[in-house]
Write a protein that binds this DNA or RNA. Structure first.
Length: 131
RNA sequence: GCGGAUGGCUGGAUGACCGCGGGCCCUUCGGGGCGCGAGGAAAGUCCGGACUCCAAGAAGGCAAGGGUGCCGGGUAACGCCCGGCGGGGGCAACCCCAGGGAAAGCGCCACAGAGAUCAGACGGCCGUGCUUGCACGGUCACGGUGAAAAGGUGGGGUAAGAGCCCACCGCGGGACUGGUAACAGGACCGGCAAGGCAAGCCCCACCCGGAGCAAUGCCGAAUAGGGGCCUCGCGCGGGCGUGAUCGGAGCGGCAACGCGCCCGAUAUCCCCGCAAGGACGCCUGAACCCGAGAGGCCCGGGUUGGCAGCUGGAGGCGCGGUGGUAACAUCGCGCCUAGACGAAUGGUCAUCCAAGGGGGCAACCCCGGGACAGAAUCCGGCUUACAGGCCAUCCGCGCAA
């Protein structure tokens, strides 16, 4: 399952902290609760929560939260899919090993925000939250 | 053409790049290829089932509780569907109805009014008496109140009136006729009986055991470090004597409860050469597991992971035939269409298409943007939400012929 997608690292040297590993998907409720106790940052299209697990593992894990506050089932699914897509595009180059990240959807904003803007927001936010 | 009624369909299209979840095939285990992947409501979880477990021999009866409620048919079943009946609405097509019982019983019916279910005499009318405007009696044709005042119209009749009598209408009963039935018609009889609410309780008929896929089965993990008492076996094995049972004090345990050095009391005598410690194994057998034979009760503690169930079914769809007014049944041929579990079915971009807005005589141009909504064991229904578009049949009006 953990398949290193290390093909053609064009910009790998520019960000030494990057890991070219597909993030694992978090499924345990306790992991989500722990991440919510970590660092958090609010952005236009979503919220970002992050936590350094400090358990010796280098794995990067990511989870998505879209509660009923986001809307009905259709709205929640759409928000989660867009979050999943920007995570898929951004995390392999900007995540740090050993960290958990949780992206939280916001009502209307997550579905309506500009997709390119959300990608760059996530990159910038990851840079800040690691400090 | 305008307005309306009913039934049904659709509910963005194409392409590019990057992805996701199952399946099948190949693999040098890095991966690669092929194909499939949301809805008419997937929704609400309101009914009915399939399936699984539990309980109870099967099945039935009774009680409680719940549901259904014109008749006939359809269906696996239904509170669903179809066809009728009755009542109501509409010019009509057509639509709506919680539509059993009010002579089993209880309860309720405000206000107004003289009187509201044992009906009733306020005014008025009539009679008698006298103190000439009052008393007693008769009367509901008239007035007034009300949703409703013991049917309506006309005539006779009377002191005045009244189904008091008569005709017609209405009402009640009803032989008989038609219909499977609901029901419809109705000779004839009765001067005419007392209302409504059963979505207030209730009565009657019929239906319903409980829990649900987090069902259920298998395998792990974890806690504990092998908890206690009572009852009952089978095979192998073979029988404890410093023993057994009861009581006391004592000791142990969070507890349920246990232990047996010591003391006292009581009854009994099976087996035995040794191994011998009452250990081990098997059968039967769980409503989560530890739990190790089974069952019951109690004490303490622990898990929420994997696989199966999981999608082929009272199947669906298309075409055609047969029976039926129809729902539907049945036959033939062909095709097969999601199975996830923090839960895939997507992200971005481009070009079109329809609704909407603006400009223009027009062709056309610009803006703009996609209804309700996301499977979770599976079916049959119902209900609710839904931008816009399309089709068929029918009705009314108008115009033309």
């Amino acid at each position: 399952m953990t398949t290193p997608e290390a093909e053609k690292p064009k910009t790998a040297e520019a960000t030494p902290a990057a890991v070219f590993v597909r993030p694992e998907i978090m499924t345990k409720r306790s992991d989500f609760l722990a991440a919510a106790q970590g660092r958090r940052m609010a952005l236009a299209g979503f919220h970002l929560q992050a936590r350094f697990r400090d358990d010796g593992s280098d794995a990067v894990r990511v989870g998505f939260t879209c509660s009923k506050k986001v809307g009905n089932a259709v709205a929640r699914n759409r928000a989660k899919r867009r979050l999943r897509e920007i995570a898929r595009l951004v995390l392999p180059t900007c995540a740090r090993p050993g960290w958990d990240y949780v992206l939280v959807g916001r009502r209307d904003a997550t579905a309506a925000a500009d997709f390119a803007q959300m990608q760059s927001d996530l990159k910038a936010a990851l840079g800040k939250i690691h400090k």
